[in-house]
Simulated scan of single mutants.
Amino acid sequence: MPVLTINPFLVSVIIPTYNASQYIVQAVESVWQQTYQNYEIIVVDDGSTDDTVERLKPYLNHIYYIYQSNQGVAVARNRGIEVAKGEIVAFLDADDYFLPDKLAAQVALFSTQPSLGIVHSGWRRVDRHGTPLMDVTPWEKVPQLNLESWLRWKPVLPSAMMFKREWLIKVGGFDKRFPPAEDTDLVLRLALMGCEACWLLEVTVCYRQHPGSAMYKGLPQARSLAAVMDNFFSLPDVPVSIRLIEKRVRYNTLVWIGWYLHSTGHPKEMVEFLQKSWDYSPYRPVETVINWVESFAQFYQERGEEMDAQKFLKKRYWQKLMHWTLTVGLNSKK
């Protein structure tokens, strides 16, 4: 006789969407194609004005569709958490899509490690058409997921993660004050509360890169991440061990923001954030400038791109920044 397999968890897959009609069907169908079948799909339409609902009509009898006025992805995800019936929650942005074993592989880790609150995984960057660009395997750089590593490296991508719903409720869900870095804020607060996390050493989701994705939001993303850092370090229950690395965490975060702004075409604001990083730099002026350049080259390499350092160093804004660091910046620390 065949052995009956009882699925241990109902998984609630929450798909927030806003004007992503060209991608939403692929997202939904990628859930239907999962090898793990004990799930529900909750689509929270955050006030779309395109033809999202028309595209979803053939699926409405099989998904839980919620329409709300436009309030942002944090509110949309929180609405999904509120109505979810599953013990486990998987988020899927409407422009991303799961690979077939995503749910099964992550649920298996929850089954064998009941203390876990988060299971994270790798992701595949694809272009707007779904053509693969590169696989991202963050555990090679960040083997352990704890409060310190979340702070230092911030390897957060909701579509690649799975959460125990009880933890999402306990932490109060996503904070709408920090778009589009509300996901990093959530994970930091969860880690601070003691939520255990581990890696699934597999690529489980395709993360679509296109002009409307969070990766290209430039100034809002930069300012939001900086605000998340300010908020986190203002919390009264941050442990002493984390206080001791605050300056280094702030420095590295501001340098990453500077690179991110450069990569998204905001050189003026790049200069602003690198100047802020100087206040936390553990290096002397010349060493700091060298670290900025080396960090930029590394960040580009991690994204599968090369930086023309010689061309970069000749930019007028960079020349002015170096002059500031060696004069005004140096005097500011005396």
Rank of each mutant, 00 (worst) to 15 (best):
N231C: 08
N61Q: 15
G218Q: 02
P143M: 01
V107I: 04
T184Y: 02
I257W: 03
R284Y: 02
L330P: 02
N78I: 10
T288I: 07
Y39P: 11
V328Q: 08
E40K: 12
L321F: 12
S159P: 00
G172N: 12
S121T: 15
Q144K: 03
M307D: 13
A160S: 15
S121F: 13
W278N: 12
V43R: 01
V44L: 05
V271A: 13
M307L: 15
W153L: 13
D50C: 09
L133S: 11
E54V: 12
S149I: 10
A90E: 01
V228A: 06
H262W: 05
I6L: 00
A309Y: 05
A197N: 02
S48E: 00
M162K: 04
A20N: 07
H266L: 00
L192Q: 10
Q37F: 08
C206P: 08
A74I: 00
F110M: 07
R125P: 10
G194T: 07
L321R: 09
G172D: 10
E196D: 12
I15D: 08
L261N: 05
V25L: 07
K57S: 15
S30N: 06
P239D: 01
Q301S: 11
F91V: 13
G329H: 06
P8D: 08
P132A: 14
G329L: 06
G194Q: 01
G218W: 00
D175C: 10
V83K: 07
L192D: 05
L254S: 07
V31L: 04
Y65C: 03
P211V: 15
E166R: 13
E140L: 00
T184D: 06
P155T: 02
P2C: 14
W153S: 15
P155V: 05
Q310P: 04
D95V: 09
S281V: 05
I63R: 06
N7W: 06
K85W: 08
R177D: 08
P239E: 01
A20D: 07
A222G: 06
K141L: 15
Y64N: 11
